[in-house]
Design a binder for these strands. Structure first.
Lengths: 192, 192
DNA sequence: GCTCAAAGCGGATAGTCCATCCGCTTGACG
DNA sequence: CGTCAAGCGGATGGACTATCCGCTTTGAGC
């Protein structure tokens, strides 16, 4: 992955495109690369060169958000202490953080929900995040805090499901609904 | 809603179109009305006349599935007896039935997940179904079997979320995963 | 500061897909 | 059988996608 540094103009355009893309994502608009080009005052080909598909653009937009989640997870992990309640609390907090992030940043949802193969650029990031979540999960599970019917691989799907469910509910505040649903779900995930 | 009966040829075409549409839905293909027309040996305009959008076609395809769920619910409801465990079991069984149906019939998912306003044709059916689920829910709730943080209006979103989560999970058997997730979720919904 | 190779640019345009319109056909009914 | 409205079909304009290629800009080397 040794990338030659971009030429000055190319870097400028890259940022402009990303900015426009971020704006579109935030307002929930569908991403059409020709429109992005016009809005960024850039040729169509320039957009397509940097981002061959809308998904590639969204992926790149989502990058920082994923990294933030990873850092969040890493900063809190090392304090070990596999006490049952603590390990559960740590897992729960990160799931809430993940749901909050997805509710806040619309670029995350499609990236998390997409199959691994569809997102070459973020595959490695997702891997790292999954590994962090997995560690938290394993600790909680080892401490006996988790229902044995739930596995590591279920965490991301379940988080996506929570966000999706909240977006189906015809409510103004999607984030609050998502938190509520996650709370209910976690009552089921927690072992009794 | 007094509809003039269709002319013989129109009815024939209508069925052909629906059949083709059902096939496409079953194989998970995206629905393009021009393709449907060709596959049904029918003019494009004929398809558009019956179904102005792909959603309208899916809606109609989903109709019988929704009706089956309604009947299922109605046939079991009247036996009243608001005993706590029984009312919970009835609610649970119908949620499982709903999830199973969605896993089996791909046309249901978009219809359930769509906002009321987007689906003029099925709005009334969805209403009826929601009313049935609502009754089951209210009975269970009145019997104290349900977590007070969950409301009637949450049932459909949560079911959609379960299906969505299962479809994110990279597994062969989506139906089984969905059932598993629903079981976990219901552990959280049930009052302890 | 000048030169020049190559990295990068942009927009014209060919390829697709979508949905409407309108002249023709067919079924219903007396 | 004749009438005529309901219904048919596909040609076609409009929108969107993505590529190609001739031109411009950059920056490394002198």
């Amino acid at each position: 992955m040794t990338t030659v540094p971009l030429r000055k103009d190319a870097a400028r355009n890259w940022h402009r495109i990303l900015e426009v893309g971020r704006g579109l994502v935030d307002e929930g608009a569908p991403i059409q690369l020709n429109d992005v080009a016009r809005a960024a005052s850039v040729g169509v080909a320039t957009v397509y060169r940097h981002f061959p598909t809308p998904e590639a653009l969204v992926e790149t937009i989502a990058g920082p958000g994923i990294e933030a989640l990873i850092e969040h997870a890493e900063s809190a992990l090392p304090e070990s202490a596999p006490d049952r309640d603590e390990s559960w609390a740590a897992l729960r907090d990160f799931l809430f953080a993940g749901v909050d992030a997805q509710a806040r940043d619309a670029s995350l949802q499609p990236v998390f929900a997409a199959p691994r193969s569809a997102l070459p650029r973020t595959a490695e990031l997702k891997e790292r995040l999954a590994a962090r979540y997995g560690e938290l999960f394993d600790r909680a599970r080892a401490a006996g805090a988790v229902d044995p019917g739930v596995a590591r691989e279920d965490l991301v799907p379940l988080m996506c499901g929570v966000i999706f469910a909240a977006s189906v509910h015809p409510t103004a505040d999607r984030a609050a609904t998502a938190r509520r649903y996650l709370a209910v779900l976690l009552d089921g995930v927690r072992r009794r």
